[in-house]
């Protein structure tokens, strides 16, 4: 059963065409990777889904055409975007940041439980629960951004470069936690990632973008080790 479907999606920033026909399909509970070199249009694809850029083509979520919706409307449908650069609120504490994530929720008890769950998922945050977010390390900020997205109880998570700027061991910790989240909650995911090996630990299938176009789509097993993958990352 398909949860999210992109059909020939196009997007441009002014005169520059950034997406030139991206198609992909994510099943319920599935995790889908978007791979490709810098500037291939990976982040823009996520922004297209979350409503932050105007698009052509069709984007269907849970049987509903969401292209043209505002970002807050898309978010209200249950798509949580963890943007690149994390964007947490430095003046707020970790706990307050988590509460911010639950802004639209009315179930106070459920929110408290989910905060506990997030702290269990990311024990580093448990230690820093009263710190201002601005005092967190890069890895902790990334964990906080993911946790904050979880707090909105989404049906789908859009993860943008969760390993960017992190030491390899920290990046692995983050991905381990996200994999556990996937197993335990069944939240569907679209994952943009530079590090293909890291991505394949999480996703079932993936597409490779080249200059705004899907050039290759397949399961993780099919794609692992293929020449195109290496080529994509070398920018050739």
């Amino acid at each position: 059963m398909t949860l999210l479907e992109l059909e020939d999606v196009t997007a441009s920033y002014g005169p520059v065409q950034v997406l030139d026909g991206v198609s992909l399909s994510v099943p319920e509970n599935g995790a889908f990777g978007i791979l490709g070199a810098n500037g291939a249009g990976k982040t823009t694809t996520l922004r297209a889904i979350s409503g932050a850029v105007r698009t052509g083509g069709r984007i269907v979520f849970d049987g509903k055409d969401i292209s043209g919706m505002r970002p807050d409307q898309v978010a209200a449908l249950g798509i949580a975007h963890v943007p690149e650069g994390r964007g947490s609120f430095g003046d707020l504490t970790v706990r307050e940041n988590l509460r911010v994530g639950a802004y639209l929720r009315k179930d106070r008890k459920g929110v408290d439980e989910d905060i506990d769950y997030c702290l269990d998922l990311f024990p580093n945050l448990q230690d820093r629960i009263r710190s201002n977010a601005s005092a967190l390390s890069g890895g902790e900020q990334q964990m906080l951004a993911v946790a904050r997205a979880i707090m909105s109880k989404p049906r789908m998570l859009l993860l943008d470069e969760a390993s960017l700027g992190l030491a390899p061991s920290t990046a692995k910790n983050v991905y381990d936690a996200i994999r556990r989240l996937r197993l335990e909650s069944g939240i569907a995911m679209v994952v943009v990632e530079q590090n293909a090996n890291l991505a394949f630990t999480l996703v079932d299938s993936a597409t490779v973008l080249e200059t705004g176009r899907s050039v290759l789509t397949g399961t993780s097993a099919e794609l692992k080790g293929m020449d195109e993958i290496r080529r994509a990352y070398l920018g050739g």
Partner: peptide, 15 residues
């Protein structure tokens, strides 16, 4: 505060 802090994040949370 969320809107002041980051409008994109606000949107991504349904605000």
């Amino acid at each position: 505060a969320i809107v002041k802090g980051n409008e994109n994040v606000a949107s991504s949370m349904g605000i």
